[in-house]
Design a protein around this nucleic acid. Structure first.
Lengths: 221, 221
DNA sequence: AAGCCACTGTGACTAGGTCACAGACCTGAC
DNA sequence: GTCAGGTCTGTGACCTAGTCACAGTGGCTT
């Protein structure tokens, strides 16, 4: 298969001993997923540990009332460690993972994963690091949702998700999902930002005109 | 030492092979902490994996503005897996752990922990299960903070933290910290509950008079 | 008894979430 | 082209939650 060299995408795996690498490469297979695939969710458990080679995956939570909040994104070179562990270890939870782009990933079967954890300190470090990064993300989200203002968080997200031209291809509803708030709230805040000359809006998109204004709000005390 | 038999407190460790058990017992030591000890926090990293034999530990997050939110509690028979892993793997975060009672714990040095992870599938399962339970807790908290009403969450907490007599020894401020909200909000909600005849309040304490009323609110859609 | 301090109550105001609905824009069918 | 439907956005009214300021109140110490 053309992706035999996927190991090179993962800096954390670069120095594994040859036998460990061999197990990894022979036991795992590369999977391709189109954009918008639901990789797992309440009720669907993956049976393998996933490493992303290409694309990004969004992990989000959906409330009973239909409101959503984005928890974090997994990008190329990272692993879905957290969610895999959840499913390995314990009961049901509410998060779901959706590919945002076309995705290539390496699926390591559970048995191989377990074997590698046992054999390789480096692989363990790789997994635990991925874990703790996600946990840090979750701590940060709790902090933001519980204690931060929406305008500040929205400004942060706009800066975060803008491309190099300051363009953001998201609807108000999608921005609201990023923050776990309501669409109307985002609309009103964007109007305010626009009034201040920081952005311009169009159907399904936002353009940043004055990133300095946003940045100042985003880093406000 | 009198606590040599601490292994019996951890059902997940009951069936470890003798050699693994031996490593555990010889390398780790039992520590005693008074109530109110700050076990770790921003800036203080423990260097060992902790298992609780007796007492409870509260893990909470403190915002810049001084507001707090309780993330979860670790009780006897459980491990501080999550927080340990955070500290092992990755950068700084904001949570802190405080003993709520006098606490006895087993401290497993990092090297021993690493060795056990490598040698024992059962120990791995124990650790991963503890991990995923905490992650599930965090997911639940995000869901509650982002999407649930305060009155519902307060009713849940009151039921959760009441003793068998329906008595709760917490100030309004402490209840607010449990939920990540403000003291005034709790005071007002408690007044409302009292008006409905569900509780009575006194300085530093709440008594449940009608748990059915609370329960109905707590499980509301 | 006086004084202190932690705890609680309350009003006024701001921010954020909900609901209902109107209008604008986009696409595909005809 | 234009018509119909769906999606996206704007807005007012209203409710819940968080903030601020300050006034009581209970309990403990000296």
């Amino acid at each position: 298969m053309s992706d035999q060299n996927w190991i090179s995408h993962f800096s954390g795996l670069a120095h594994l001993p040859p036998d460990v690498l061999a197990s990894l490469v022979t036991a795992s297979r590369v999977v391709h997923l189109p954009a918008g695939t639901r990789i797992f969710g309440p009720g669907q458990a993956p049976d393998a540990f996933l490493l992303l080679i290409r694309g990004t995956v969004r992990v989000q939570q959906v409330s009973d009332s239909g409101r959503e909040i984005v928890l974090y994104r997994v990008s190329a070179g990272e692993s879905c460690a957290l969610t895999t562990a959840c499913l390995m270890g314990y009961d049901d939870y509410l998060a779901e993972a959706i590919s945002e782009t076309e995705v290539d990933a390496v699926a390591i079967p559970r048995a191989t994963f377990d074997d590698l954890i046992a054999r390789s300190p480096d692989f363990r470090r790789f997994v635990f690091t991925a874990f703790s990064r996600r946990v840090t993300d979750l701590f940060r989200i709790i902090d933001e949702v519980a204690f931060s203002r929406v305008d500040v968080r929205l400004a942060q997200r706009l800066l975060e998700r803008a491309n190099t031209q300051g363009h953001i291809d998201l609807t108000h509803q999608q921005l609201a999902s990023e923050l776990g708030t309501a669409r109307e709230v985002v609309s009103r805040q964007l109007n305010e930002f626009q009034r201040r000359g920081w952005i311009s809006t169009s159907r399904g998109a936002v353009d940043i005109l004055n990133s300095e204004g946003l940045r100042q709000l985003a880093t406000a005390p």
